[in-house]
Amino acid sequence: MDFLGFFNITTISIALMLIGSIGLILVKKPLDKVILFDIADAGFVLAVVAFKYLDVAFAIAILGPISTIVFLMSILKINEIRTKNSEGGPNV
């Protein structure tokens, strides 16, 4: 039986997107969410390349790290707000 015929680039990209998306929903730790976000992003780029939209893949490759940095900054801000509220600060 030929298992390599099943594992083409489209199947791998869909699997990466599903694993990353489901993991983002289920995982509670913020840094683990960043890792799973990058796994889903890698699957998305791979799917775009598989359908031969190379100009879009180039734009995604340029903007991908920027979105990861924004995601990390939002996690830090949320943690800062949570610690401020847990210390008994004013609820705004």
Results as ranks from 00 to 15, higher is better:
45 V>E: 04
83 T>K: 13
50 A>V: 02
29 K>D: 08
29 K>F: 14
14 I>R: 02
27 V>D: 08
64 G>T: 10
65 P>R: 06
89 G>F: 10
35 I>T: 10
12 I>M: 06
81 I>M: 15
67 S>C: 10
75 I>Q: 02
9 I>K: 10
25 I>R: 05
26 L>R: 14
24 L>P: 01
43 G>W: 00
22 I>S: 08
46 L>G: 02
76 L>A: 15
23 G>C: 05
63 L>G: 05
4 L>M: 10
48 V>D: 05
25 I>Q: 02
11 T>R: 05
53 Y>H: 07
90 P>F: 13
52 K>N: 10
7 F>V: 14
42 A>C: 08
5 G>K: 08
6 F>G: 11
17 M>I: 05
18 L>P: 04
5 G>R: 02
34 V>Y: 04
5 G>M: 07
81 I>G: 00
54 L>M: 07
47 A>S: 14
66 I>A: 06
41 D>N: 09
13 S>E: 01
56 V>W: 09
50 A>P: 01
73 M>H: 11
37 F>V: 01
39 I>L: 09
77 K>V: 15
92 V>R: 10
36 L>C: 08
19 I>S: 00
29 K>V: 04
59 A>C: 03
69 I>A: 11
9 I>V: 14
6 F>N: 08
18 L>I: 15
73 M>G: 07
73 M>A: 09
76 L>F: 13
63 L>V: 11
3 F>Y: 15
37 F>D: 00
76 L>K: 11
45 V>P: 01
85 N>F: 02
18 L>R: 04
21 S>C: 07
88 G>E: 09
72 L>T: 01
80 E>T: 13
24 L>V: 08
83 T>L: 14
79 N>Q: 14
21 S>E: 13
14 I>K: 02
65 P>W: 12
31 L>V: 14
33 K>G: 09
24 L>H: 00
14 I>E: 01
60 I>F: 06
30 P>Q: 11
52 K>F: 04
6 F>C: 03
50 A>R: 01
58 F>L: 10
75 I>M: 09
44 F>Q: 15
16 L>P: 03
56 V>R: 12
70 V>D: 01
82 R>G: 02
36 L>F: 12
88 G>C: 06
8 N>C: 08
18 L>D: 08
24 L>T: 08
52 K>W: 03
39 I>C: 03
11 T>Y: 12
45 V>H: 03
91 N>P: 03
66 I>N: 05
39 I>Q: 04
86 S>V: 02
48 V>L: 03
84 K>A: 09
65 P>Y: 08
46 L>W: 03
37 F>R: 02
79 N>G: 14
19 I>L: 15
64 G>Q: 01
54 L>A: 02
40 A>Q: 08
35 I>F: 14
